[in-house]
Design a protein around this nucleic acid. Structure first.
Lengths: 213, 213
DNA sequence: GAGTGGTCTAGACCACCAA
DNA sequence: TGGTGGTCTAGACCACTCC
């Protein structure tokens, strides 16, 4: 009857109804546990979930407060491109358009990802070889997929934007220069905060990145 | 010494090193708890976190297995536009460009969001009035912000894409027709799965949606 | 049906940080 | 420095599913 999901819903209801206004502090876990007639751990689970959603802000000693500015948070999946293509029933392939070694032991790679032999996404990547194991044969497995399965879990930043196709992207994706492209840029670092790779991925027109709230 | 984060790291290490190959099943929580010398709840917390990350797949009775295709998951914040603008130190304002009532008790709204009086984003929205409380004065508070603070937590779908500016967007955002725009479309439903609102939000050039992994 | 993850409890200790 | 959230434990019951 009083699962942590129920408590999450009840807390949300109290915020929405104004019992706990935006920006205000809410009672401590122990008080809430007594109110709801459950263990503190159950309250804790509910409040942690709300904090992860962006509804609450929690601080040791500072207590829990309702965020003054509600923020919707959505989780987006960044799949391996091969899986993304095959999920739509198409055949995946990729071509290395160009590669060169750069300064500081880096490898620059320009790759075209295809779905049923039609351009799907154009990728420009810089790899920092010093912080990576020896590379595999990149014609057999895309660098994208190899990194995900090989490198230990890493942190990084992602940015999504729209940009006009430059000459290289236009040629690779069979579109006129200036065509709007959905662009994902990523910078990935290993556990020691060393940059592993930087990527700029431009998707062919029609691409949508979908998620649910 | 053996916190749930340590266990998560250890499980990830075993997956990465091939002890537990992609697609394979891993031991039950109880076994792992004995191995790691901790309570089952601690293992559970770690494995749940990995499942949320997209590393593991868990099913009652079916056990836990390593996903065959690793998926990176990133959480993006969808802020209220006013807060988003003010976070950059600029002054927020908005204008209702056009509105009209449509079929089935709907309200169509075209809004321009501004930062320091320069176009920031162009919004086209359909509201289903039957499932909403009476609307406020929309010149005082943007519909965006009112919905977030008023409507009970809702589910919905979001999609990100790139599109060429149409005539209306171009006029509102002071850009030529055809300019690449970052577009967010949203469909929000209430707890009864009734559609509350649909939005198409086109951002002025230069917009980036950022997040971390 | 039975095995596995999902969750709750009551108690405890700890880490952090605002007062 | 004391209060608050973060976490761990040992045990228990439950719900979902695969067999």
């Amino acid at each position: 009857m009083t699962g942590w999901e129920d408590i999450r819903a009840e807390v949300q209801a109290r915020i929405r109804s104004g019992v706990w206004p935006l920006g205000s502090a809410i009672p401590h876990e122990e008080d809430l546990a007594r109110d709801f007639g459950c263990a503190r751990a159950t309250v804790n689970r509910a409040l942690r979930a709300l904090a992860a959603q962006g509804v609450l802000e929690r601080r040791r000693k500072g207590g829990t407060r309702v965020l003054a500015v509600p923020v919707r948070k959505a989780t987006v999946s960044i799949p391996v491109i091969r899986a993304e293509v095959e999920a739509t029933g198409r055949r995946y392939s990729h071509q290395i358009i160009w590669q060169a070694t750069g300064q500081e032991n880096t490898l620059h790679l320009e790759t075209l990802h295809l779905a049923d032999d039609k351009p799907y996404a154009h990728e420009v990547r810089v790899l920092h070889l010093a912080v990576l194991p020896p590379l595999p044969d990149l014609t057999a497995i895309s660098i994208n997929e190899w990194l995900v399965t090989t490198v230990s879990y890493a942190t990084g930043e992602i940015a999504f934007s729209a940009a006009a196709a430059d000459a290289g992207q236009a040629r690779a994706l069979w579109v006129p220069t200036g065509t709007p492209l959905f662009v994902i840029t990523r910078e990935t670092r290993n556990a020691a905060a060393q940059v592993i790779t930087k990527v700029l991925l431009a998707h062919a027109p029609g691409y949508h990145l979908r998620t649910t709230m």
